[in-house]
Design a protein around this nucleic acid. Structure first.
Lengths: 244, 244
DNA sequence: CGCGGATTTGAACGGAGTCAATCCGCGTGG
DNA sequence: CCACGCGGATTGACTCCGTTCAAATCCGCG
């Protein structure tokens, strides 16, 4: 926690969706100014989560959705015997928690990869709101459906790609998302460990590490620990899809 | 196509959700009789698809959701270079097409595994309906979220399981779903080929075939082509989760 | 400055893939 | 009615990619 004045500052920011830089990312297009104001009222509060802390746990009651306002998180599902599968890495403006609607209980857990902050959207209020504004209703449906499509891509990646292809498409995906947020597409710092990347891609951490080295030897990237620079994105893209 | 009278019979059946045996599966709980009547009006028509035919193609405009009324289907996503990932097998009462909402365009393709029939729910009408009836609205959200959870399980399976475990959990999942529909949990006929099973599980068809043989030698199942009998479901369950 | 987690790298192994040769069952047409 | 053909399934032999186990190194952080 910080000093009193800081806290007040954050309180003020709390209803500032209309001036939020993430607006394009997390808000539906085509809302009137008035509707946007109403939407702001939905955002209950912000929550800060320190690196490594959990935002929600599998099995805990579902009440709200979260959008990443600062930092980044991972979500993962756990198997009875302890195996873990990272289902996604989430950065600025991305929405998480949609899997909780199904059973009113979170079906995955979310952890902060670095000190982060999320906006909290109570879901029941969002449903009310969606009932009155068709554009909002459709937006909610789209968000849910987009998550389904994202996961289908992951399934395709997990089921059909070789290690090399998996890591290449992982890097290109990150690059894309950084670009969309106004950051460099060719130079960034990974927020997750090799093990977490491996879990996401269905590989072991050693394999991930070896691939980083091989990509570097091939002049495709520079990889020094978490720092990554893409030297030859086209080359990476060509790595994907050789078999047949 | 059949004779005239047959066709008329099917036309009559078209608004018969309230007397449909799949009601429990595809309809929300807690609708009043009146609401259910309104819902019936949503179901536009049925469509019959012959074995091997396509219900919708990736990229085609999204207009409606479908529930399986008879038979079974598979959905699959395609990669630019031709690789295919089966994202699901769908049987009686299951809903497909949710991935289309995202872009107003289908993001996967659906094929009939056998001669099948689906109910067609125009999505725009479903949205209208959901706006007036909160229980229906929430049901739609749940359906979407449940699909997300289902895919998360698939990701966990694809990312963390060995071939043996994948096939065992596949068989147990099928068994469960047959049971829920009133069929035998221990004896059924596969509707899909070894190749399709392999694609779903992230394996090659030869591997699937070999595993069926090994399971049979181990006395866990009887597998003769598409006919499957589970002799030892408990044994299958124990197969899943050995590597600590 | 030292500890511990994360990363890198090597060597050996093994599981699933690949390639290829049947085999089986079913529908089709002679 | 039977022979044929064809797609799906089975099985074998061999290969190779990714894992496993192990050791060394790096690095951030107290």
């Amino acid at each position: 926690m910080h000093g009193q004045t800081q806290i007040i500052d954050f309180q003020r920011l709390k209803t500032a969706c209309s001036s939020c830089s993430l607006q394009d990312l997390c808000m539906p297009r085509g809302l009137t100014a008035d509707e946007l104001c109403q939407l702001e009222a939905l955002v209950d509060e912000h929550r800060r989560i320190k690196r490594g802390e959990r935002l929600y746990a599998t099995g805990s009651p579902f009440e709200a959705l979260y959008t990443v306002r600062l930092g980044s998180l991972k979500t993962s599902v756990l198997f009875e015997d302890g195996r873990e599968q990272v289902t996604g890495f989430h950065m600025l403006g991305e929405l998480i928690g949609l899997d909780g609607i199904s059973t009113d209980t979170h079906n995955c857990s979310a952890y902060a990869l670095e000190d982060s902050e999320v906006c909290l959207l109570p879901f029941s209020r969002l449903e009310e709101f969606a009932r009155t504004i068709p554009a909002m209703q459709h937006h909610v449906h789209r968000l849910l459906s987009t998550e389904i499509v994202r996961e289908q891509h992951n399934m395709l990646m997990l089921g059909t790609m070789r290690a090399e292809e998996k890591l290449a498409s992982f890097l290109l995906d990150l690059s894309d998302r950084y670009l969309k947020r106004g950051y460099s597409a060719s130079e960034f710092v990974l927020r997750m460990t090799r093990e977490e990347i491996g879990s996401f891609l269905g590989l072991k951490l050693e394999t991930v590490s070896r691939l980083f080295s091989r990509f570097q030897e091939a002049g495709l990237i520079i990889a020094q620990q978490k720092y990554i620079k893409l030297l030859d994105p086209t080359g990476l893209r060509q790595l994907i899809g050789p078999p047949d």
